[in-house]
């Protein structure tokens, strides 16, 4: 195990290096920040001067070397727009993102796993059909539509929750529900189908014929065996929410990393883009490692060569 972890650590290092290189190339491909940073009266000389100030006049390889040298020390440069260190900006926005993502994740797991399991026990039952209709809705309704409907219903009409911004737990409810909807749908459907798969297997029949209580059969034997795809999708969606909550953040004016990163992309704010992608990649690497380790706990036959 120790050897495996060490190897993963080494691979992660290569991955991060790869990501920095790709992101460096891509950011320089998407265009010039300078034209977006100056007044219309600015001349070509002004633009050249700013280019020099930002260090963008140097050759690309040289810029990359400087970038890596600084990045190793945790310095991603100063944001072109915000005039603050890029990493500091990302870390400032991270708590809001983590709060929202964790809340949405907990919500969707708490709903989807029981719903998926119950639905799989009696396919075609009322509960199954209700659950799947809900899932259908969740997988095909646009996020902005859901978000604005929540605002109109729970915020304006019923006045149960504050409409926007970050604050107490009541501020978290609507954005978390909005963000959770798609993943709840996905997890419910996948849980149901994995459970159906397993419930067909011979060992379940054996367990049943031994006269075990149905709930014990379901939870102990079936669920455990259906868990691998479920864990995978939960982790996958957790990661995607971390980086992909932009629409939810925009609608609820939530001060998260998603909005920061997307605005940085639109403004060609290279340092912020690079820092944001770097931080996100750390999360993905960690989550995926965790998942691989959980696999071996669920199914001890799984080994990594």
């Amino acid at each position: 195990m120790g050897g495996y972890l060490l190897r993963r650590l080494y691979h992660s290092f290569i991955v991060i290096l790869g990501i920095t290189l790709i992101i460096f190339i891509i950011t320089h491909m998407i265009g010039d920040p300078v034209v977006l940073l100056l007044s219309p009266e600015a001349t070509q000389a002004d633009r050249d001067e700013l280019q020099r100030q930002l260090g963008l006049d140097r050759s690309l390889p040289l810029q990359y070397i400087v970038f890596i040298k600084d990045a190793v020390r945790g310095d991603f440069g100063v944001s072109f727009r915000h005039q603050r260190p890029a990493l500091e900006l990302v870390l400032q926005h991270l708590p809001a993102t983590l709060e929202l993502t964790l809340a949405a994740m907990v919500l969707s797991v708490l709903i989807s796993l029981p719903l998926g399991i119950l639905a799989s026990m009696k396919p075609g039952s009322l509960l199954d059909r209700t659950g799947m209709t809900f899932a259908l809705f969740g997988q095909s309704a646009p996020v902005f539509w859901i978000g604005i409907m929540f605002i109109l219903l729970f915020g304006v009409k019923l006045r149960w929750f504050p409409i926007s911004g970050r604050g107490g737990i009541e501020n978290l409810v609507m954005p978390a529900m909005t963000l959770a909807l798609f993943s709840t749908a996905a997890q419910t459907r996948l849980t149901r189908s994995s459970m159906l798969d397993v419930l067909d297997k011979d060992f379940i029949r054996t367990a049943r014929s031994k006269g075990l209580h149905e709930f014990k059969v379901i939870l102990k034997h079936a669920f455990k065996n259906a868990l691998i795809p479920i864990i995978t999708i939960v982790a996958l969606q957790f990661g995607m929410m971390l980086s992909g909550a932009v629409i939810t953040e925009t609608i609820f004016a939530w001060p998260g990393v998603g909005r920061l990163a997307v605005n940085a992309i639109y403004n060609r704010d290279y340092p912020v883009i690079q820092a944001a992608v770097f931080v996100t990649s750390l999360f993905f690497i960690f989550i995926n490692l965790l998942v691989d380790l959980i696999y071996t706990k669920i199914d001890p036959r799984i080994t990594y060569r």
Binding site: G18, I30, S243, G244, V262, I265, V277, T280, S281
Partner: peptide, 15 residues
Amino acid sequence: TDIQLSMPYILIALA
């Protein structure tokens, strides 16, 4: 997959 997941799609789209 780790690399791919870390890339914002808007960035890829613009590239």
